[in-house]
Structures are given as structure tokens and as C-alpha cells.
Design a binder for these strands. Structure first.
Length: 587
RNA sequence: GGGCGUGUAGCAUAGCUGGAUAAUGCACCGGCCUCCUAAGCCGGGGAUCGCGGGUUCGAAUCCUGCCACGUCCGCCA
């Protein structure tokens, strides 16, 4: 609880000095109490034992005795060698209700721009759940950075060249509808629900081409196909405009379909940058020339070029190839050019990448250093798997996000109909959509990115406690009270902090007080799950407040309770939005 | 084989820049709607923190060895 620490650190430092604790070691060991019942800020006194020559428990007691009553503190306790500080709820309430207080101001404002690149999925088929972690994680980071007060640009790097688009373009140009149906005869038709969506329609061409390529591997027909695709891919890598245009025509409708799905989840981008840009403008070629001059540079027999990053501390395979024998660039080389360009655009770079990119990100980072550039910050995540194994668009064992959202919406609608029989269809539809998309986001964002994740329908569709609806529900309660306040008699006087404070109120004030701390940590450490879990805490605390603190008594507003409820409603609204959850007013 | 990541109640997770009796949800058991939305609230049981060593006043947390799972080790993207 930073606000408490800031308020009392002067007193605390003096008290510590009075028992012989000098220096600023205490600033490094002081922190939030582990358990709320222990206090708000805790100082373990064990490290001072040697310095002072007394046992920790005694030091804690002596410091506690030396702390004179501070208005921000209701209690100073020494237990088990800890000094525990408990915030004075009345003081907290005054701070938190102040419009210029900790809840009113941005938490980590920075000059300059943060460029967050995320999703960047190959536009070869509908967005599936395996890709969802990147998009949801990335978008949540974008939102939380903005909530904390930073300027952010969200960017999608479009892979508009290379093999995957090449295969799609080849299929669209060479396969008839009948060819596709024949190649995919064992997979059934496209779901009629999505027949109008170009990503679902076109992915069948991609899948058919992959099936045909693998069936005809080694045959003359198969080799002709490989040659045709290879020629296009090669041309794209040399910046051939006609081929790049053909590729773009092939993938654009697919990308639009994917973006439509993402839009439903509240995910959008400020900019799209095409990979081919850096081939066409010559920056890739310039980088390859520059790399050839480095002392860690090497060349293979066929003219392919690499950097020996072992000399820069890389373990495992140390050769990083950036140029083929035929002189064309590789994906990672283009990524280098992309990053150099990104550094001209922003002051801070953040990438969201799957764990399969760990090595490459390391190689790109080390190479950027060789070029005199900084390394971007990266958030890695583990893949979402199906119980049957890894998802793959090519093999067709995927759960499409469109299907998941429809299913989640249908389940949500069942719940709404059951709980609120009086609602009209349009309202049920809007609530179900909000609950479904929020629940899907929350289920993914609440777990730490590096943790493995297996997708199950049961879990994805669970709306139980600890999920988005729980947090959203607390907000609707606050909204309900807010509406009632408009009709109630206003309070006679302003909020008074002298009266009794029920547990539910005290707990809510303490969770609110910690809100800026959690947001700052989540943003600085790129850990949105910390903020997600905190929002559950906040919802829980609001429910306790709701239980203990009537806001309207006999038709008249209770000044303090009303003010706290309104403040909590604002914080809930902002926090839910920061996670990409939809803050409904009724549900 | 090598690099990197993960391993915490039946399940899913938090805690990992060392600090208190390891926290939360689901599931399980019991209670609460003449009272601001019960998608809620209150109470209860449940853990050799993967295994073995080491460092420390103190280890889920740091070091080390082993085991399991994931991922990479393409002149693919």
C-alpha cells in the first residue's frame, strides 16, 4: 500500500533510527503484509538483528513503541519479529474519496510512446483458440498500459509473404470448388453459420492445398505444385510487386474475417505493418550488408551467411542464419528490419510471442545489440492445447473462436433467461454477448502467461465464481445502487469519517487503496493476471460492503456509504474495461 | 543429446527480487432472499509446495543433481 508507506515513511525512519536501525535497508524489505488480517504494510525486523545486536522481536516492539500516533495509522503492532502497520480506515476513506487522490490520477504516466505488437497471426484461416492467448494477452497489456497513463500504439505485423500465404494464393488460383470439396471429403462442409465469413470460406482452400501437397508428395504432379509455389515464394522474398499483390488479394479477406472475430472480443489495432515493406524499401538488404561487416560474421559453403552468437553468450545452437545461399532474406532478418523501424516510431517496445519464438527472439535481440539498438521487452506465453494435442489450422483440429463465442453466448443466454425471466430478447442478447466475450477473455487472462493451458469446453464455458461474471456482477450491483441514489433523498451533510466502520467497508477501502499498486505492478512486470485476480478481490470486497453497509436508509442516502459505493463503481468500471471485460449496468 | 520454460489440496491457480500458521476459486458439506440484483453472502473439512542434497537465523521462493511435461535446436514462417 504505497499511499500509506508514503504517508508514514518519515515517522518510521525516525522511529527506526531511535532504536539504532540506520541506512535504507528497511526500504528494501518493507512491503505489503502477506495476510490482510496482519496489517497493510509489514516490516520484517530479522535483518536488523545483527546491526542492532538485539533479537528481532525486541526491535519490532521498540520501533512500535517509538512510533507516535500518525493520523494514517490505526494500529502499530509488533508480532513474531514483524512490525505491522494498519491503515486508519477514516484516513483511507478521505484519501480515496479525494478526486486528486490515488484513484484519480494515472499510476505510471510516461512521456513517449509504447508500441505493443501482438497477435500478428498468419492470415491463412479463421482465428482459433490456440492463437487467442496472444491476442487477449496483447490487448489486455495495451488496455492496462493505457489505464496506467501511458500512450500506446497497438500494432499487428502482417505476414504477407512466404510459404503460408503462398500456399493460400496458389490454392485460390488453381483449385476449383469441386477440387476443394474432393480434397476435404473426409472433413465435412464448412459450418453454415460461417459460410458468409471469408476466413472460414478461404481456409478450405488452404487446407485442401495442404492435403493435396502431402498426398502428392514425390509425384510429378506434386513436384510441379511445389515448383509453382516455390517460384511465387521466391519472388515475394525479392519484393516482386505482382506476386505481393496477388498474395495480398488472397489473404486480405481472411484477415478481415479474423479482425471481425477479434473485434467481437474488443480487440482492435492502431496500425498494421506488412512484412514485405522492409524488403521493398531496401532496409533488409542494408541490414544484411551491415551484418556482413561484423566480426562474428560467418559464411557457409553455398554463400549462406550467419552470425556466431555463441561469442555473445548464446548457448545451444549458436549460428544464426540471416541470409540464404541465393541471397534472399529470412523471416528473422526481416524481423530485424522491422524492429529497427519500430525503434524509430516509439520509445518503448513490447512484443507478445509464443514460447516457440524464444530462441528467435533471443537471436534478434542479440543481433539488434550488435547493430547498436536496444532489445525489445517480450512477454512469452505457453500454447493453448486441446486435450487431443496441439491445434493446427493445417490439420483442421482446431476450436474456432467464432464457435467458442457462439457456444458461450448460448450458454450465457440460458442463464440470463433463467435468472431474469422479465428481460426482453434484445436485452438478453446484449447481456449474453457481453458475458460470453468477457468470460472467454477472463479465463485466458487470469492465468500467468508462461503456464501451460489446456482448452476444455467445460472450463471455457464456466461462469462460476472466480470468473468474469463475478466481477461484472459486483459492478452491476454498484450501478443499481447508483440508479437508486438518483431517486433517493440526498444526504443531509457530507461524508463523515468519525462513525463506526463495518468490516465490509474497511475491507473495501483497503482493496481500493491497493488498486494503483497492483495496476503499476501488472504494467511494469507485464503480468495482467495479477490485475485480473485483483479485480476479483475488488468485486469480493464490494460484495462484502454491500452486505454490511446500506447506502440508502429509509429513502435517504448515507453520505459516506454512497460516496464509497460510487467511487468503487468507477474503479470497477475502469478496471473491467482495462481487462477488456464489458461493464454492464444490468445483468 | 543440448538450450529455455513449467511442476503448489481431487481439479484449476496465486505467491517465486528469501521472511509469520502457504492464499483463492471450482468441486464437496451446512446455513441465508417480507431487506439497495442470491451470477451473491456466511460457516466447514481438505497440501510431505515434483524428488534428493546444499546456502541461510529463516527456503514454495536462491544454488545443485535427478524426474515429469511443454517448447526450440530449418539456409521454414
Amino acid at each position: 500500500m504505497q499511499i500509506l508507506l508514503d504517508a508514514v515513511s518519515g515517522d518510521l525512519e525516525a522511529a527506526l533510527a531511535s532504536v539504532g536501525v540506520e541506512g535504507d535497508l528497511w526500504r528494501r524489505v518493507i512491503g505489503p503484509a502477506r495476510e490482510r488480517k496482519e496489517g497493510d504494510v509489514a516490516l520484517p525486523c530479522f535483518p536488523f538483528a545483527k546491526m542492532v545486536g538485539r533479537p528481532p522481536a525486541e526491535i519490532a516492539e521498540a520501533v512500535a513503541a517509538a512510533m507516535d500516533g500518525h493520523e494514517a495509522l490505526s494500529e502499530v503492532r509488533a508480532t513474531n519479529g514483524y512490525l505491522n502497520l494498519v491503515a486508519n480506515p477514516a484516513w483511507l476513506a478521505a484519501q480515496l474519496l479525494d478526486d486528486d487522490g490515488p484513484l484519480g490520477a494515472p499510476v505510471a504516466p510516461e512521456d513517449g510512446l509504447v508500441l505493443i505488437e501482438h497477435t500478428s497471426a498468419n492470415p491463412n484461416g479463421p482465428f482459433h483458440v490456440g492463437r487467442a492467448r496472444n491476442a487477449i494477452l496483447g490487448d489486455t497489456l495495451v488496455r492496462l498500459n493505457r489505464l496506467a497513463g501511458r500512450n500506446v500504439r497497438a500494432e499487428y505485423y502482417v505476414d504477407d509473404m512466404g510459404k503460408q500465404v503462398g500456399v493460400l494464393a496458389w490454392a485460390l488460383a488453381n483449385l476449383s470448388e469441386a477440387d476443394v470439396a474432393a480434397a476435404l471429403s473426409d472433413r465435412g462442409d464448412v459450418d453454415s453459420t460461417w459460410a458468409h465469413k471469408p476466413d472460414h470460406a478461404r481456409v478450405r482452400w488452404y487446407q485442401a492445398a495442404q492435403a493435396i501437397r502431402s498426398a502428392q508428395e514425390g509425384t510429378p504432379e506434386g513436384e510441379a505444385i511445389e515448383k509453382a509455389i516455390g517460384t511465387m515464394v521466391h519472388a515475394s522474398e525479392h519484393g516482386d510487386e505482382a506476386v505481393l499483390e496477388a498474395f495480398e488479394a488472397a489473404y486480405t479477406p481472411v484477415l478481415e474475417g479474423m479482425l471481425e472475430t477479434l473485434g467481437r472480443l474488443g480487440i482492435s489495432f492502431d496500425a498494421f505493418t506488412k512484412e514485405s515493406t522492409f524488403v521493398v524499401d531496401g532496409s533488409v538488404a542494408a541490414i544484411m550488408d551491415r551484418l556482413a561487416t561484423l566480426d562474428i560474421h560467418g559464411e557457409a559453403d553455398n554463400g549462406a551467411r550467419f552470425l556466431d552468437l555463441g561469442q555473445r553468450g548464446l548457448k545451444g545452437k549458436t549460428e544464426f542464419f540471416y541470409r540464404r545461399g541465393d541471397g534472399s532474406s529470412l523471416y528473422a532478418t526481416r524481423d530485424l528490419a522491422y524492429h529497427r523501424w519500430k525503434w524509430t516510431q516509439a520509445d518503448r517496445l513490447l512484443n507478445v510471442l509464443g514460447e516457440d519464438h524464444r530462441l528467435q527472439a533471443k537471436q534478434v535481440g542479440l543481433t539488434l545489440n550488435e547493430l547498436g539498438e536496444s532489445t525489445p521487452e517480450v512477454v512469452f506465453y505457453s500454447f493453448i492445447k486441446l486435450p487431443e494435442g496441439k491445434m493446427s489450422t493445417r490439420r483442421g483440429n482446431v476450436v474456432f473462436m467464432d464457435d467458442l463465442l457462439e457456444e458461450a453466448k448460448a450458454q450465457a443466454a440460458t442463464v440470463v433467461r433463467d435468472l431474469r425471466p422479465e428481460y426482453e430478447e434484445a436485452q438478453i442478447d446484449a447481456i449474453s454477448e457481453a458475458v460470453a466475450t468477457s468470460a472467454v477473455r477472463f479465463n485466458i487472462i487470469k492465468v500467468s502467461p508462461e503456464k501451460g493451458f489446456t482448452f476444455t469446453w467445460e472450463e471455457a464455458l464456466s461462469f462460476e465464481g472466480g470468473s468474469a461474471p463475478f466481477a461484472m456482477y459486483a459492478h452491476t450491483r454498484a450501478c443499481s445502487i447508483s440508479r437508486k441514489l438518483e431517486e433517493a433523498e440526498p444526504a443531509v451533510e457530507g461524508p463523515s469519517f468519525d462513525g463506526p466502520m463495518p468490516d465490509g467497508l474497511v475491507d473495501l477501502l483497503r482493496v481500493l487503496a491497493v488498486h494503483p499498486d497492483v495496476l503499476r505492478n501488472a504494467v511494469q512486470q507485464h503480468k495482467p493476471h495479477l490485475f485480473a485476480l485483483h479485480m476479483l478481490d475488488l468485486a469480493n470486497a464490494y460484495n462484502g460492503f454491500y452486505r454490511d453497509c446500506p447506502v440508502i436508509v429509509k429513502g435517504r442516502a448515507h453520505a459516506l456509504h454512497a460516496a464509497v459505493s460510487e467511487r468503487a463503481r468507477e474503479v470497477l468500471h475502469a478496471g473491467l474495461t482495462g481487462l477488456g471485460l464489458v461493464p454492464l449496468e444490468r445483468m
